[in-house]
């Protein structure tokens, strides 16, 4: 049975989801602020009311636009709609997640977060891939699988929505850290320690917000990080490399060619950890590096000199 699907946001991911859904025979409307052309049968619109009759909505906008977009959606959605977002960021010092923003700004309650090693190109072209959907609503999982799944995309699910959102947001930052480390020439062993201990660090913070540890070691966390390091050409990799070559943060962001939320996420998480008295050696060191307050040699030395204990 064909679904009526709305995609909100016409970035790389928005377009890929629209194409994948249309390929599976669903009726798709893509909303964006500016006029867009997409191959038929995807319909495009700049009128937010055009999505009103859809059953399933994918929100595919950067986290910094989440509040504004949610407010617009708030004018048209109601209790019948099911919504999934694909943003990677967190909002403000309270580390508000995107589903929390949507719940605050709209009356949509059947919400989910799609994350993991999902790549826009693979999704658009139908290459085999996998993702994780965080939602408490089994009917939403069913619908997303019907919209995007099949033999091309394996959509796993977990009720740990906040875990998926936190893991997904922090993978961006860890990717920058690993790219930086690779560029300054650290070996595979050090990279592995950075990746694993970095994930433990963010998972510890995540647990204070209600996330489950296992989500960070699953597709939303380590799975996504492996894809990033294996070379799916994310802008975070370019940012990390540019920083390692001595670029300032603003010029490195320019070089990366995209807005990257990882650095902001790291600073927000550090602030949260400080309030709770948690240690965040990797995040703190990296923020100091990115702000030019520390050299890479000092950073590695500072991390290596820390007291070592049981894993």
């Amino acid at each position: 049975m064909s679904l009526r699907i709305a995609v909100v946001g016409a970035g790389g991911f928005g377009r890929a989801i629209a194409q994948a859904s249309a390929r599976h025979g669903h009726e798709v409307v893509l909303w964006s602020r500016r006029d867009r052309e997409l191959p038929a049968p995807v319909r495009t619109s700049t009128d937010i009311h055009s999505i009103k009759d859809c059953e399933l909505i994918f929100m595919a906008v950067p986290a910094r636009h989440a509040i504004e977009t949610s407010e617009q959606l708030g004018e048209v959605v109601d209790g019948r709609h099911l919504m999934v977002h694909i943003s990677r960021g967190l909002i403000g010092p309270e580390l508000e997640t995107i589903t929390q923003v949507i719940a605050r700004k709209t009356v949509c309650r059947r919400l989910g977060a799609l994350a993991g090693p999902l790549v826009a190109d693979a999704l658009a072209e139908g290459r085999p891939s996998g993702a994780i959907l965080g939602t408490g609503f089994p009917e939403l999982t069913e619908m997303v699988r019907e919209a995007l799944g099949g033999s091309e995309l394996r959509v796993y699910d977990t009720p740990d929505v906040i875990g998926v959102e936190l893991a997904s947001a922090t993978v961006g930052f860890l990717t920058v850290v690993l790219a930086y480390a690779q560029e300054v020439g650290v070996g595979p062993s050090t990279l592995a320690v950075l990746a694993t201990r970095g994930m433990v660090e963010v998972s510890r913070i995540g647990q204070t917000l209600g996330a489950e540890e296992s989500t960070f070691t699953g597709l939303a966390g380590l799975g996504d990080l492996i894809a990033a390091v294996a070379g799916d050409e994310r802008p975070e990799i370019r940012l990390g490399r540019a920083l390692a070559r001595g670029a300032t943060l603003s010029s490195a962001v320019g070089e990366a060619g995209a807005y990257i939320e990882g650095i902001e996420v790291a600073a927000q998480m550090m602030e949260h950890a400080r309030r709770l008295g948690l240690e965040t050696p990797i995040s703190s060191t990296f923020v100091a590096l990115s702000e030019g307050r520390m050299s890479s040699d000092d950073a590695i030395q500072a991390l290596m000199e820390r007291r070592v204990g049981r894993e």
Partner: peptide, 30 residues
Amino acid sequence: SLTPTGRSIDPGGYVEHRGKAVADPARDAA
């Protein structure tokens, strides 16, 4: 029932699945 901006909505929509009101304990638990 009201939206955050004061628009009134039908709370019955929350139990609809593809246009029909259905019982779903898993949904209600969420």
